[in-house]
Design a protein around this nucleic acid. Structure first.
Lengths: 184, 184
DNA sequence: GTCTATACACCGATAGAC
DNA sequence: GTCTATCGGTGTATAGAC
């Protein structure tokens, strides 16, 4: 039923927020259980594989969220510049305007699992190509579009990291604002 | 003596490499001791405050390294564009061409100590101003110089994070190469 | 599905010999 | 300054009642 799906999504969101705030190694089962409003043992009902399985599931969640929430905005009939701006806005929404963090980046930093790294690298490549096609639609030649796509993603993650460095999400929000202007 | 200074610097470098690879929470005393070629207890002779003190000392190290290794390149009599390029090169050297990581960013992510966060934020602000003055020397108006400085730092950290995301330092090196072209 | 209780390993840290 | 041995605490994970 719908309510079950919503509960599951809520549980995942609560767990993800702990990982995002504390990192993979920093997140403890006590914190995760507390955030979920459950006992530690209950988490093992939902994730028999423990912390590693949580991370794997939440990674798939994050990919799906960005795919449907942000990169889907790149398709459509609007001018490519407008689609790129909507993409940037949606990415900003995903990381809560710089207050939160990208789960994928958190996992890339903390986890040692090679399966995660491979999935993440492949996904990044997909997204890079997707972005590059939109830049081509703005008139860029393929090579320039490729560079613009890589730069855009690096900019977004760079402003996000700088915001964390300064513990001030303002840096992310200002960077995003400036990015959108440049895309116009 | 010189040899003692060198040994201390080597010890710090060995410890820093563990923190850079595994994060603050992920780095264990066993790993740190193994990397240093010492027993756990011996680390407490050098750092009575344990892991927290190691992080604090290594943070000061990292600031000093970047200050003297990279930001010092911004001063001099060469054209400002050339100084900016040397700065980028030196930053790249500090993170070993994207293979390693910036200790400051690692600590900003993992540690919960407010003292660290404050020091890091202040240091970032200093560096931002320093960079901005050089951009002004290229002819940029103050506001534009400010934005260019913020963008440059975000770009560097962004390419670094993307390289980690893909477990491929090529992304960092290509980004740096492109950045230097744009600075010319 | 959730809980309490618990097993067991490892973590950070200390004591004290050399 | 470095070591071995060990402490108390916490971490992940499991058993089993409800």
């Amino acid at each position: 039923m719908v309510s079950r799906i919503q509960s599951k999504a809520l549980l995942h969101a609560q767990l993800a927020s702990v990982f995002q705030a504390r990192g993979f190694e920093g997140a403890t089962l006590n914190e995760l259980a507390a955030a979920a409003g459950l006992g530690k043992a209950s988490l093992y009902h939902h994730f028999p594989g423990g912390k590693a399985e949580m991370a794997a599931v939440l990674l798939r969640d994050a990919v799906a969220q960005l795919e449907k929430g942000a990169f889907a905005k790149l398709n459509g009939t609007q001018p490519p510049q407008e689609r790129l701006q909507r993409f940037v806005d949606s990415f900003s929404d995903y990381v809560d305007g710089g207050e939160s963090h990208c789960f994928i980046a958190v996992l890339a930093q903390g986890s040692t699992a090679k399966a995660h790294k491979k999935l993440i690298a492949q996904q990044y490549d997909d997204w890079l190509r997707h972005l590059a096609t939109v830049f081509e639609q703005t008139g860029d030649k393929p090579k320039r579009a490729q560079r613009a796509a890589a730069k855009l993603l690096a900019d977004l993650y760079g402003f996000l990291l700088v915001a964390k460095l300064c513990s001030d999400s303002k840096h992310f929000r200002q960077g995003v604002k400036r990015l959108k202007k440049e895309l116009a």
